[in-house]
Nucleic acid binder design. Structure first.
Lengths: 147, 147
DNA sequence: CTACATGCAAAGGCTTTGCATTGTG
DNA sequence: CACAATGCAAAGCCTTTGCATGTAG
């Protein structure tokens, strides 16, 4: 049940979404993609399998899946939102994003949770979610740049 | 030189931008605003001072200032980008965002820098920037909800 | 069988661009 | 005085909506 073989059926059931071939394909493509995709990039990939699939279907599904926390977004430097698959682990999504090759690497463990505790202790309130987006160059791209 | 009285002249000079009344007003409004503003909200505020200011001017300035790191963006739940002033401290911007009253609170110190070190040590590569966005309810709004 | 999902076409609305004009350094 | 900034109008493009049709549970 790793990122390349998640239980899509259970995920969709949990979100109250029907398991259609296209919805499933969207999850499969995003889960198999090591980087992030724009709605249109995803759409182009989907058209190889479903000749008639429309862009509105892609947008509708991305919205539902993002609301459900199965996929997440990043702010691309071009100020558009891109999407990537993320297994939910206590609602925490931490990723390192290579701005060159677009690879998204999971950050398995981080100290933001501890930080949250301190913030609540100091200011009160409640934190419902957080976005941690680290932008940079992965080791491969860094090597390419300096070669 | 706190967030309510930053040296706008120096900031603009450093970015190579001319100090026009409108550009200065944009910085002033964002710096005085405890929350985040959409381009159009900012524009409406600006029109009180400059009757003829156009929305393109707002967008152009937001882009330049965001590129310069003087202001930053958050992903609103409505999937649009909102802007807020942020003094640059080593290029790190950490904020707690109240999704109810929109207040943006600085997180003065956090552990993401340490996390970055660990990530680089493990995976290699380089991190050029990071976005840490904590969503939740500030103490006031939490009190309002539970009252 | 009923409610959800999708296609298609169209509308909507946020952002950007071009160009003439104004203003800063 | 040269170049950046702005206003205005228009174009562009991403995203959403409406409605009829198809499909999962």
């Amino acid at each position: 049940m790793n990122r390349h073989n998640p239980d899509f059926s259970s995920i969709l059931k949990e979100l109250g979404l029907k398991e259609t071939p296209k919805r499933r394909a969207i999850l499969e493509i995003l889960a198999a993609e090591p980087g992030f995709l724009s709605p249109e990039e995803l759409w182009r990939t989907l058209k190889a399998r479903f000749a008639t699939i429309g862009l509105p279907t892609v947008y509708r599904n991305l919205g539902e899946l993002a609301d459900g926390g199965v996929i997440s977004t990043i702010i691309h430097p071009n100020r558009h939102l891109y999407y990537y698959f993320c297994t939910r682990v206590n609602g925490h999504h931490h990723h390192f994003i290579c701005t060159s090759c677009r690879r998204v690497e999971d950050i398995p463990e981080c100290s933001v949770s501890a930080m949250e505790g301190e913030i609540i202790a100091r200011n009160g309130g409640a934190i419902t979610s957080h976005i941690v987006q680290l932008n940079g160059l992965c080791s491969d791209c860094l090597a390419g740049v300096t070669e």
